[in-house]
Design a protein around this nucleic acid. Sequence first.
RNA 1: GCGAUCGUAGCUCAGUUGGUUAGAGCGCCGGUUUGUGGUACCGGAGGUCGGGGGUUCGAGACCCCUCGAUCGCCCCA
Length: 428
Amino acid sequence: MAKPNTPQAIRGTQDIFGADAEAFAFVVETFERVRKLYRFRRVEMPVFEKTDVFSRAIGETTDVVSKEMYSFLDRGDESLTLRPEFTAGIARAYLTNGWQQHAPLKVATHGPLFRYERPQKGRYRQFHQIDAEIIGAAEPQADVELLAMADQVIRELGIEGVTLHLNTLGDGDSRDAWRAALVGYFGAVRGELSEDSQERLEKNPLRILDSKDPRDRKFVADAPKIDAFLSDEARAFFDAVTSGLDAAGVKWARAESLVRGLDYYRHTAFEFVPDEGSAAAAALGSQSTILGGGRYDGLMESLGGAPTPAVGWAAGIERLAMLVGEVGDDQLDVVVFAENDEAIPYCIDLVTKLRVAGGPGDGFIAEMIVTGSPKKRFQKASKAGAREIVRLHVEDNGSLAYHVHVQNNETSQVTDFLKHDWPPVQKS
RNA sequence: GCGAUCGUAGCUCAGUUGGUUAGAGCGCCGGUUUGUGGUACCGGAGGUCGGGGGUUCGAGACCCCUCGAUCGCCCCA
């Protein structure tokens, strides 16, 4: 328990350590490796922007903006916001830096994001995502490539029991017609809907489709489907996406109720969701979507840019990390301990040289132990879990003695190093 | 914003219907044993029982407030 005068961490922030931190790093490393295979270029973005960047991208009216952004005034009384997503900032950079010249632009990034929400399982105020966007590509093959990469990331993380749920929201006209039909359909049974959904009827009727309330669910199955309202172009686009996914070998399932909360989404919308009853679903609790995204052809205009097609996704690193299983620390190769304090300088010298041996990337993973009684030092060395233990001791006559203990009768790599690369010393 | 559960050593937790100096395991430190050795045994340090107020002869236990955590609802870019 922290002392009362120790400042507490901010609600919803995490101090990630040990196995969790290793899993986190594994997710990031895997993402970095895979995105290079697809030639997504790395971008580094500011963690905060003018509030306008997000409020205009997301839409002023939603309570997402009014309640759930981490906004504050700086010393010049300008309203700034800690980024709640990557997309809006990347769109802003695309417009302000003239990245149009690189279109179609494939970019990837990862880092912390901030939303002023109540923390729960898999949901934090400061959380972390990996993110990929293709900007300036109107063709459905861009959606396919983006999804193929997402699928590969998840598979290379070793995550099982997760399925790509796919839907189309159509173009602007399709979407508006569908929305009107839904309002008509649910409006007719308004009184039988949950209180929340009666509210959603006004604010966000599409969201009724993924309500958890049984009172709503019984109407959802027979609700109007987007397919009935798709224009020929929108239908052709979706068909091209699905056939492309089949060609890429990406498994998917149609999810007619999958929608996006924001108006700028068009055409493709998708989420990778754990299968019901899977280990992944059990591990995640109620916050189950691990990767989500879609096509946001309407976004650039809301930021004052020319109409620009784009598609992207983001995935929560914490949620992915919960699914990758145990990722241990790297095996410790060798631990060096000084049996008496006279041997400490030798100990420092040896452990340093072991770590740089063989050049970058090839050094021994090494620790040293120089505290406690001689017996304690050996006990610590034994418990460290190293393959090899080197004991250093300076004799009364000032000469150095060393002895190498090798676990499990493996051959000693350190002994070889000591013979060739360490100042010759007397062996005990 | 709303709801439920929880908050005792560094960590994981015990603490009976409120009753003397608050316990265990692990970890840490020291010692004995062993004696090229991760063992076993002994000992030690470490707690304003989240904080504040109240009830009571007496509160870690009961009541109120507060802070925090966990999980869920809303929302989900």
